[in-house]
């Protein structure tokens, strides 16, 4: 139990620092490609253990979002998107429940439920997160084409980073 909390805490710190210090400054300076925002911090919410209380997920999502906002100079924007991500997590988990169901003691990882299941899970949540993030950032749907372009480009790039992380560390819990 203590081990589980410690692991999640360390993951929180590690992915957060990776996001705000390294990925924040990573920009491809070409037309169109410069729309890419590499966003991997939702992975922290994705990998929280199965039996976590939903309201705790929300609070963690809020804290994470506010911390990211501090570095991105965007008060509230990342927080709003991350809270939503945390809120839809249990619904997405329900929706894509594998045939054998989940074991309460597990965490939703590649190691536990296979890579196909995990990619579906991560893809749904990341797509929602990015779309909401860029929509709130623009604060209007006038730029819907731009928002969609940004979402798709950033989704592909971020997904690559998330999968590299998962294959590299292959967390069990």
């Amino acid at each position: 139990m203590g081990n589980l909390i410690l692991r999640n805490f360390l993951r929180f710190v590690f992915i957060f620092l990776l996001q705000v210090l390294v990925l924040f400054n990573l920009v491809l300076d070409y037309p169109v490609l410069n729309k890419i925002n590499i966003i991997i911090y939702p992975l922290i919410i994705l990998l929280l253990p199965m039996r976590i209380v939903n309201s705790l997920t929300l609070v963690l999502g809020f804290i994470l979002g506010v911390l990211v906002d501090m570095f991105y100079n965007t008060p509230g924007i990342h927080a709003a998107a991350t809270v939503l991500t945390a809120y839809i997590r249990p619904y997405v988990l329900n929706w894509i429940e594998p045939r054998g169901g989940y074991s309460v003691e597990s965490s939703p990882t590649m190691n536990q439920y296979g890579s196909r299941w995990f990619i579906t899970y991560a893809a749904i949540i990341l797509l929602v997160h990015l779309f909401v993030l860029f929509s709130i950032q623009a604060f209007t749907f006038v730029y819907i084409a731009d928002i969609l372009l940004k979402t798709v480009m950033s989704f592909i790039a971020s997904m690559v980073f998330i999968l590299v992380y998962m294959y590299l560390f292959n967390p069990r819990e």
Partner: peptide
């Protein structure tokens, strides 16, 4: 959970709009 969700989102939007 839903109430908490709404409260947190309101806080976020207050931050966004204030800024």
């Amino acid at each position: 959970t839903t109430i908490l969700f709404i409260i947190l989102e309101i806080i976020c939007f207050v931050l966004i709009v204030q800024y």
